[in-house]
Amino acid sequence: MTDDKIIQTDHPLSEDQKSVLDALLNLIIPSSGDGRMPGAAEMDFLGYLVGDESGFLPKLVQVLNAIVDAADSSHGKSFTEINESDQLDLVNSLRSSKGELFNRLTNQVMACYYQDDRVMRGLGLEPRPPFPKGNQVDEGDLSLLEPVRQRGEIWRKV
């Protein structure tokens, strides 16, 4: 599969590529199982890329194509048809040979995931910008400075 198979529309991936992407995203960040944290495949990752990081789309297609090709050559099947353990082995093998590409993908997935409203709520955070509401922080205990005061002046006299 080659890079020219990218479909340049609002939905920049083919359905097959989208299926592979969903499987990959769930390998990167699966749901937590207790219902608190969604999986990365539940995010609108493509929407995030199209809106904020469109320059990464060709790289994403490279990743997906490499996965499809590797699944075909090693298993004779589509990536989505092999079991999760084999999917992970296959992707880890690719990560060792295409480390930078997969690291960049991971960073994009993290950036998309950790600004999603459901994820924020799962972490106990309000899904909002910091301004104008701001944040409350504990004042801290300034009585802990007593030993420092007791040791007295330490500045060097001139």
Binding site: V137, D138, E139, G140, D141, L142, L144, L145
Partner: peptide
């Protein structure tokens, strides 16, 4: 001062 917060307590100790 700006609040040193919980982390200020920990590092202060």
């Amino acid at each position: 001062p700006i609040p040193i917060s919980k982390m200020g307590n920990v590092i202060g100790r």
